[in-house]
Design a protein around this nucleic acid. Sequence first.
RNA 1: CGGGGUGUAGCGUAGCCCGGUUAUCGCGCCACGUUUGGGACGUGGAGGCCGCAGGUUCGAAUCCUGCCACCCCGACCA
Length: 491
Amino acid sequence: MAKNLTTREQDYSKWYNELVIQADLAENSGVRGCMVIKPYGYGIWEKMQAELDRMFKETGHENAYFPLFIPKSYFSKEASHVDGFAKECAVVTHYRLKNDENGKGVIVDPDAKLEEELIVRPTSETIIWDTYRKWIQSYRDLPLLINQWANVVRWEMRTRLFLRTSEFLWQEGHTAHATKNEAIAEAEQMIHVYSDFVENYMAVPVIIGVKTESERFAGAIETYCIEALMQDGKALQAGTSHFLGQNFAKAFDVKFANKEGKQDYVWATSWGVSTRLMGALVMTHSDDNGLVLPPKLAPIQVVIIPIYRGDEEFDKVSEVALELQKELRAKGLRVKFDNRDTQKPGWKFHQYELKGVPVRIAVGPKDIANGTFEVARRDTLKKEVMLKNEVVDKVSGLMDEIQKNLFSRALDNRTEHTTEVSNYDEFKQVLDTKGGFISAHWDGTLETEEKIKNETKATIRCIPSDVEKEEGTCMVTGKPSRERVLFAKAY
RNA sequence: CGGGGUGUAGCGUAGCCCGGUUAUCGCGCCACGUUUGGGACGUGGAGGCCGCAGGUUCGAAUCCUGCCACCCCGACCA
């Protein structure tokens, strides 16, 4: 374990890479662009999964599982979909290896070429809609509300742990509806489920909005998104929910008999969040001492560290610590008593700080004599001595307090780094000096959006949904604008 | 995929230009002892296909070719 973490000030990107590795979340593997998610990192992901899964089920969805492989022909059925993903697909062409005749190792058996190549799914719309054709005949079969937890592969040029990996874990919801309005309502509902989760569990504030045409999902009519702002002033797309219209139903011929007895194509949505959320979590809250985790997602919420000399003291301290652990667990907290004799207290303090455990409690002979505990919170790094009879209530109260503090700290950062500008010069200046979200007027054309992107690298992150519309003139062309949109440099 | 860089013990590194005894140092690891309220110290010890595969040579970590991976900059990124 390296002792020093690069600071955010020195090199934000390096800080992130080092932190993910040092906090034991994940590491690079021998496979290009693919990561190994380590137990601690996976533990956080499991917490995320559990909450999201619960929320999906509460909104009427069921889980299912579809194949990893998609026949190539399925892919070509929806034209814009193939445009969006073709360049980053891994393709299976053979099904057998054999021993190399002139030497060592194995080679691909040229005789084992597949009749039709299989695509490793970059997303599952095609295979799912091909299946839905068989499941849907009548309006009585609708709505069909399915989610799957899966891995997908997108052959990215440049990868970064969690933020962009060739293989990643995610969930993808795929729903089918009888009417357009119902499908739109579903897509909107799910983006709100995402924002609820990201804000209330991850403590990461997000802006809800819709994507511009150029940023839209391949095959979607409308893409709803949540955008978060990282500490370095760059935006991160945290989740998307798509209204797909009848595009996939038409491509895969999924029709149903409506109440009037007429055949109609079904209306679709799809929505997803991925292990990228782990990156958002790390980059939003963590500091130069390491990870900072929101209590609701921390695998360990409270760690108890014993301080002692000799076996006799250890036994006494252990007794008190175990009692405290029991009481805290009775309050529903995830508590670890780290009674390892192989590491010293100071080492443990640093270790759990690096891993972002929200609350640390130290207990030693002095505490036993005084009837106290030393309680340190990770978010503020402040220590407080608490009396034995108050510690359980106070610590469980801290969970809520830390959760709220992390959110408000992140929200303050976003507020500070959100700027309204009135002209293009100001826009460029803010982008260069301050970064963050920039709210500006845009004429709604692809050309202007493209020009801004080429000249500044900033993209339109979204057209925010929950704000009052304000008319104005485009900062670039001076043409009329119906509303402000949100620009930023993005991950 | 283009430009640049890197790959030597679990991690970080010296050596490479200019080939030649047993590959350097620190952290970590193991044993024993002393320690334990913010990353302990001493003594002893283990650990190496020098990224992989070929080639040149009496001899390769070092020179040449190919490949793989990682980092930085670009392009790409629903």
